[in-house]
Write a protein that binds this DNA or RNA. Structure first.
Ligand SMILES: [Zn+2]
Ligand SMILES: [Zn+2]
Ligand SMILES: [Zn+2]
Ligand SMILES: [Zn+2]
Lengths: 160, 160
DNA sequence: TTGCTAAATGTAATACTATAACATATCAAG
DNA sequence: CTTGATATGTTATAGTATTACATTTAGCAA
């Protein structure tokens, strides 16, 4: 339930260890973390912020890894299917997963001022949504839980 | 916390009373429920299902109320601002509010089989998301809470 | 090795969602 | 009536995502 991302941390390490975990996970599950996919994950990991598909594509293009939209969307499909990234529905944007490997129902805290995004872990069947679903006899398969607001830094900042 | 919408009910009445409530609310708050806006609300109310902006526009166009995208988006802006409708972020679609008048943080149960949508009331500061936000020092202004899954009917149906 | 198959990539075209910009019309004060 | 604010009409464009099909690559069996 910790919402990483608003606290400063060793981000270079953050990227490297996550990529290593992704390599290991793919080896174990017979998934192929191809150059395009790996680079896409690396790009997303470079910030605790959501990137649009076309933002991602622009970086991939600079690296000579492809220029047409499907290049980005295919990489994002792979990363989200594998659980390495999530889509932020409220922003039409994508972010690397901060709780790697766990089969989880992510919840996001999105700062509307500085655009940083923190991911908190929840479980689909807990909380208000789970209650409502049980009461209605609804079987949840996936949840979208996002909060828009101000992160701690931006609450203090006069205007920045 | 009841998730209306999966149960059968007198829908003609459902539409009529909600429109009357909207009329009253607008009169009281000096908002103008113009013909386009009122018809847009009526169209959304006609189903417990989310409609895309262009779906709405198609119906408005048939009624001679406008053909260009801004017509639909302006009506939707008004309806969502007034609290008469909500956007379902996960579907890029819009639905009439089922808990009229209340200043609430809606949560949606979306059936991926029959496309019906039920709205449950929650409050932004309760539940898992609220906990996570408090722990992170995050100030919530708006929440997006959506569950994808199967409604009671579609769980039973063999394949339909 | 060769040939087969499935997965991944390259590329063009198109569909879907949403907003910007500006002209015109309507309406409620003053 | 004049004026300013709100609402509408209309064109163009921006932003997001998928379809379709050709080509290449990787994995595997004969
Ligand atoms: Zn995650
Ligand atoms: Zn911030
Ligand atoms: Zn109804
Ligand atoms: Zn259903």
């Amino acid at each position: 339930m910790t919402a990483f991302g608003f606290q400063p941390h060793d981000h270079t390490d953050c990227i490297r260890t996550t990529l290593a975990q992704a390599d290991a996970y793919c080896a174990e599950h017979k998934l192929k973390l191809t150059p395009i996919r790996r680079r896409a994950l690396e790009i997303l990991l470079a910030e605790h912020r959501a990137l649009g598909a076309y933002d991602l594509l622009a970086v991939l293009a600079k690296d000579g890894l492809g220029t047409a939209p499907p290049v980005a969307y295919r990489a994002l499909d792979f990363l989200t299917s594998a659980g390495f990234a999530h889509k932020i529905e409220g922003l039409n944007a994508y972010i690397a997963c901060a709780h790697f490997g766990a089969d989880h129902s992510p919840a996001f805290l999105i700062c509307t001022s500085c655009k940083s995004v923190a991911e908190a872990e929840t479980t689909a069947t807990q909380g208000r949504l789970g209650e409502a679903a049980r009461a209605a006899g609804f079987a949840i398969s996936r949840t979208v839980v996002e909060a828009l607001g101000l992160c701690p830094q931006c609450q203090e900042a006069p205007c920045a």
